[in-house]
């Protein structure tokens, strides 16, 4: 009796015990998150590479990340504040623009850098296998560092205006900030990997994405508050933009001023989850054969 089972045990594994099966078609939902977990060391090394390589042979190093939000804020204060006279929901204009720019920049840099995943990394993808998702995840995380630096600048600005004007707010709503940042990251990642997957064979979208992100900023209350909008059709465009509630909630959590609507944020969350899910499916379908067409 024992012998029989032993024989079975010897014969069976040869047929079904394969670790890797390479086949033309894969399950639609085969996203391989487990593989990504196995390659987590690679993920962190890519993040480290992106960050350290960026500042090699520069003198100011990470300080360069201050330049962009500072100058953009100055321009926004001049154009939207001084020339167009757009109100800022009772928030100090510099802080209003800077907060919007900081969180928007994170989204746009996530989207821009992940949307080039396949094309930019074709060289390395063609030579070695690792879960392709590691690359967009790592760019998202290294952009997070850049965001951290710019957020620090924002905190400094908040502190400065708090000391000079005495209007300083610090409360539990600050706890919302990490969630909002993660939502922005997920949105950037989801949209980015969809675009990346669409551009492997036909590059048409790459042309589009650069200015589409810029235009999208104007449909998001970065340079103006949602409450300023009067025209019905314009309001609807901006309101149904899933990024709007995040920006508004970001300002609300930092300054306790402006519109904040929990349902709106829920709408954004659902939208983001759907985009991310679709993105993951398309991405893992495309990653299997994109080397043939890229």
């Amino acid at each position: 009796m024992i012998k029989v089972t032993e024989n079975l045990a010897v014969n069976l594994p040869d047929e079904g015990n394969w670790d890797i099966v390479i086949e033309p078609q894969a399950n639609l939902l085969d996203i391989k998150l487990k593989d990504v977990w196995q390659y987590r060391d690679l993920l962190f090394l890519f993040v480290k590479r992106d960050i350290t390589a960026q500042y090699k042979q520069t003198i100011l190093g990470p300080l360069w990340h201050f330049i962009q939000p500072v100058f953009t804020t100055i321009v926004f204060v001049m154009v939207f504040g001084k020339i167009a006279n757009i109100p800022t929901d009772g928030i100090e204009p510099v802080l209003f623009y800077m907060s919007g720019i900081t969180i928007w920049n994170y989204f746009s840099s996530c989207l821009n850098s992940t949307s080039g995943t396949f094309v930019a990394n074709a060289g390395i993808f063609g030579k070695v296998y690792f879960p392709r998702l590691v690359i967009p995840l790592s760019t998202m995380m290294s952009n997070m560092v850049k965001f951290g630096i710019q957020f620090f600048l924002l905190i400094v600005a908040i502190g400065y205006f708090g000391l000079t004007n005495g209007s300083f707010y610090f409360g539990f709503s600050w706890l919302l900030v990490p969630l909002l940042v993660i939502m922005m990251a997920a949105m950037g990642l989801g949209a980015g990997i969809i675009i990346s997957s669409l551009t492997t064979k036909y590059r048409d979208f790459t042309v589009l994405i650069g200015f589409a992100v810029q235009l999208l900023m104007y449909a998001t209350p970065v340079a103006y508050p949602l409450s300023y909008l009067k025209n019905e059709s314009v309001i609807n465009v901006v309101r149904y933009n899933p990024l709007t509630p995040i920006i508004e909630a970001f300002r609300f959590s930092l300054f306790n001023k402006g519109d904040f609507n929990g349902f709106q944020l829920l709408y954004s969350s659902i939208f983001i989850i759907v985009v991310l899910f679709i993105g993951l499916i398309i991405f893992s379908k495309v990653e299997r054969t994109f080397m043939d067409t890229v």
Binding site: N17, W18, D19, I20, V21, I22, E23, P24, A26, F125, G126, K127, V128, Y129, R288, T289, M291, D292
Partner: peptide, 17 residues
């Protein structure tokens, strides 16, 4: 390329242990 999983076959399969 197929064995190292940088692309997939059109038909057929490879099994690895």
């Amino acid at each position: 390329k197929i064995l190292s999983r940088t692309t997939t076959p059109t038909t057929g399969s490879v099994k690895l242990k």
